[in-house]
């Protein structure tokens, strides 16, 4: 994550990279560029706490129920990272609404990105349904990346379509590396500690 001043608004901006998340109740911007991955913005309408996560569900098709799918497991984990941070700040998932972006079908990458995007869309659809988190806006698919600015204070999102995929060389490389890593490590599991 990169913290920087935003010259146009005077607000601090937190730029998150693929695989990262950030939550705050501050008057700042959370920003990212998303291609075939998903950028989920959550906003607690009661506490005015917001957060964003940029992630991929390293799937083949989510053929089983979301509660039993080994693939969905990693998607749920990424959402839990973000929601956990928001809960620590005083939020309650019952008061959250969501906006989702990304899942682009990028022509400069292999055709597998089409399937990846479809799998990611299927995951978020099932996840938000199961969590009863209302989806208030989405901008998904297409053959272009998106640059996002999210205001966690009021839940607003500014989205710029990067039609010619300008400004994205660093993000494109990072996203590709991140997606490959997530596929490689999708069977990972956390540590277990048993106390005496």
């Amino acid at each position: 994550m990169l913290k920087s001043g935003n010259n146009e608004t005077g607000k601090t901006a937190f730029l998150i990279y693929p695989g990262e998340y950030f939550a705050t109740r501050g008057d700042v911007f959370i920003s990212t560029i998303v291609g075939s991955c998903l950028a989920v913005c959550l906003f607690d309408v009661s506490e005015h706490i917001g957060g964003m996560v940029n992630f991929v569900v390293p799937g083949g098709k989510v053929t089983r129920d979301i509660h039993e799918s080994e693939i969905s497991r990693i998607g749920v984990l990424n959402m839990e990272y973000l929601i956990g941070e928001m809960v620590k700040l005083g939020s309650n998932r019952k008061h959250m609404v969501s906006k989702i972006f990304g899942a682009a079908f990028l022509s400069d990458e292999s055709t597998s990105t089409h399937k990846l995007a479809e799998d990611n869309l299927e995951f978020v659809s099932k996840y938000f349904h199961a969590e009863k988190i209302r989806l208030v806006n989405s901008d998904l698919g297409g053959e272009f990346r998106r640059k996002l600015y999210f205001s966690p204070l009021d839940g607003k999102v500014w989205r710029k379509k990067l039609i010619n995929n300008e400004e994205v060389s660093e993000f494109a490389i990072l996203e590709e590396e991140y997606v490959r890593k997530e596929f490689r490590e999708r069977d990972r599991k956390g540590s277990i500690f048993l106390f005496d």
Binding site: G190, I192, F193, F195
Partner: peptide, 24 residues
């Protein structure tokens, strides 16, 4: 999802018997 040593120690002191870090 909490994996910080300090938080795990707090849990142990509170009386936890074990700690599993997601994903499980």
């Amino acid at each position: 999802t909490e994996a910080e040593k300090e938080t795990i120690q707090k849990g142990k002191e509170a009386g936890a018997s074990g700690w599993i870090i997601k994903p499980f």
